[in-house]
């Protein structure tokens, strides 16, 4: 059963300048020592997430809402296991697939077919299982000739279909969407929602960053409001919408 537990997690991105990225300067400091010592104060950080604590359980379908630059994507990267917090801890039980944005997360020069094979290998699939995954994804995502195209030649809608297919057919327990539903055609968005509601494991977790209330209402049982890297609210979807809905959804 999937679960995600985040305890007092913060994410600080250092803004490296040329000096900080210099091996020559670091080497000189290590050998010369005092004369070139620099205090930590000359480093600049972006505090993307601050003291985040939350627990997401098996079966949760969580909407993540927030303004631009509020930390939604950083939160998704932490919840998906792609980014370790700089302080605090995150414990992820389950296999995650991430669809962070159309085009990101895929090698643009690889074909859709090669992307499926590579992701299947990472998921530990054998050769016969990989063939089965390819057939399942092609059928669900309605991608046929598009499978041979490089990712860079696919439309955002095709990439959404590919990413969704990968998430659903690689035995993934935790699926994360980052504002990608707008790229999907209406019929495929409905198909995706139906799959999440009926065929996606009940014990799995789905986390959606999305502004469309109509999409979220169908999918989600919980909602998180995040602003300036801090969680403002985390409760049932209905309660959070009652308090904050108009400010964060359309």
């Amino acid at each position: 059963m999937a679960s995600i537990t985040v305890t007092d997690a913060s994410v600080r991105f250092p803004l490296y300048d040329a000096w900080s990225r210099s091996f020559k300067r670091r080497f000189a400091r290590a050998t010369v020592g005092q004369g070139l010592a620099a205090a930590d104060g000359d480093k600049v950080y972006i505090e993307a997430l601050s003291n985040i604590t939350l627990a997401i359980s098996a079966g949760d379908r969580v909407a993540v809402l927030g303004g631009n630059g509020s930390g939604k994507t950083s939160l998704l990267r932490v919840l998906g296991g792609m980014l370790a917090p700089t302080s605090g801890s995150v414990n992820i039980d389950g296999q995650s697939a991430t669809i962070l944005d159309t085009g990101f997360g895929f090698d643009p020069s690889a074909s859709a077919y090669d992307t499926i094979v590579l992701r299947s290998i990472l998921a530990g699939k054998s050769q016969p299982e990989i063939r089965s995954v390819i057939e399942s994804i092609a059928a669900f995502s309605e991608l046929n000739s598009e499978l041979d195209s490089p990712i860079r030649n696919l439309t955002p809608g095709h990439i959404f279909r590919l990413g969704t297919g990968l998430a659903f057919f690689l035995g993934t327990d935790i699926v994360l969407y980052d504002e990608v539903f707008e790229a999907g055609s209406p019929d495929f968005v409905v198909k995706t929602k139906d799959h999440i509601l009926s065929d996606f494991p009940d014990a799995g977790i789905v986390i959606v960053v999305e502004r469309s209330r109509a999409i979220l209402e169908d999918l989600c049982n919980k909602a998180i409001i995040i602003e300036k890297g801090r969680i403002l609210d985390f409760d049932s979807f209905g309660s959070v919408m009652a308090r904050h809905g108009p400010a964060y959804t359309i």
Binding site: G80, S96, T98, G105, F106, D107, L122
Partner: peptide, 11 residues
Amino acid sequence: TRAQTLRHTAQ
């Protein structure tokens, strides 16, 4: 060169 891919996938 693969920074964008690596930031968004767990590989």
